[in-house]
Design a protein around this nucleic acid. Structure first.
Lengths: 211, 211
DNA sequence: GATGAACCGTACCGTACGGTACTTAATCGA
DNA sequence: TCGATTAAGTACCGTACGGTACGGTTCATC
């Protein structure tokens, strides 16, 4: 047992460097550019090492998703007492962060990769991406919504439905459009503000609407 | 000049049959299963004919999207005078139809195909899908929203933003989740109702909220 | 300094696919 | 009935990729 069992490094520094290079290739050229020989060449490692570490190509793809997800750590800025103003601010920050994440090069490339892999037998990539990629940001939003309800600023019966609504108001069809190749938006700021205003109009109590 | 110049058949019956078979293969096995030899075998045609008709493999993919888009014809059920009740009904019908379209096998397969093709030089598929696939349903919704505004039931400054909001409330992240392999929803009915209620709460005038 | 593990670089193999060429059957107009 | 066009079927070619094997090199351990 080396190190804290709760802290599983999951990937060695060398492997992380290789995965980083693989992500770079994927972003640059899509899945077609992600050949085992190409990754080995770009990362200055041998194909034999790739297969030893990741099993096969699918293992490499899964590792790339797991690695990228392990890098994303959402800061849980809890603690303060929520007010109408601070709730709105926190929601807008969440909205901006969500749009930034979804617009990111690596995120888009990995989503495209996973979507392209669906309907293969080893269709674990999509599930992996849904599970590991979304959980962090979902938990952050859910915690914020719950805090808003506890503070008497929001009211909803079904937290899942409220969160889905918030997500839809922020993202609309932008994610799919970007996945299809459209350039990321430039009005993220205004989009975030409008989405949060609409959300508060739907789920805000009198307390927050007066603020 | 054979036939009406406004009615361009675009694809001969034989070609349509081939494209139909290609779509079937794509839905069944994803892009990997869509080989030229496989299409030729499944459609009982020669590879040489495929290349004569569609140029190359990319041409075949584009043709598949164009063909599928040409099959979708949105019925423009205009005419009646909108009331609060009928507007809600029409919006809910639109929501159900939108969810049904996005959940369709062929739609999901083509979207996955186009998304997988992004970041190749011939990245026309995504654009093609955005242009030809969405235009019909967008126009229908925009017409409905405009009619609602003219009838004094809706109020919005920016029609584009109102439509985006409606879309986001209906679909949320469902489309991406399905693209990633999640099974289509079963609560489309309730989802449509709730989305329309939220939309009317945001954009409905007193007239429609009273109804 | 010897030993063994890890790993890089490269060469190699089998396969599968995109695209082309050729042969043969069928359809159709004169 | 004949010639021409079309397309099916097949065989073929080049290439590129996933996966494996092997020789050489570094590096840690004894």
């Amino acid at each position: 047992m080396t190190g804290d069992p709760r802290r599983q490094p999951e990937f060695s520094p060398r492997q992380s460097a290789v995965l980083e290079e693989a992500l770079r290739l994927l972003v640059a050229g899509g899945e077609k550019a992600l050949t085992t020989a190409g990754v080995a060449r770009a990362a200055n490692c041998s194909k034999e090492s790739l297969y030893k570490w990741f099993g096969d190509r699918d293992g490499l793809l899964s590792a790339m998703i797991a690695y990228q997800a392990s890098k994303v750590r959402t800061l849980e800025t809890e603690g303060e007492r929520l007010t109408a103003v601070s709730l709105r601010e926190r929601l807008e920050t969440f909205a901006r962060d969500l749009l930034a994440v979804l617009s990111g090069d690596v995120s888009l490339a990995l989503n495209r990769l996973a979507i392209g892999q669906v309907s293969r037998e080893s269709a674990k990539l999509g599930e992996l991406l849904r599970e590991r990629g979304r959980r962090q940001i979902d938990r952050r939003a859910r915690a914020l919504l719950d805090a808003g309800q506890r503070a008497g600023l929001l009211f909803f019966g079904d937290a899942e439905e409220a969160y889905r609504t918030l997500y839809g108001l922020i993202v609309t069809d932008l994610h799919v459009r970007m996945l299809l190749g459209e350039a990321p938006v430039r009005d993220g700021e205004k989009r975030a503000e409008k989405a949060v205003s609409a959300f508060l109009k739907l789920y805000g109590t009198d307390k927050v609407l007066a603020g």
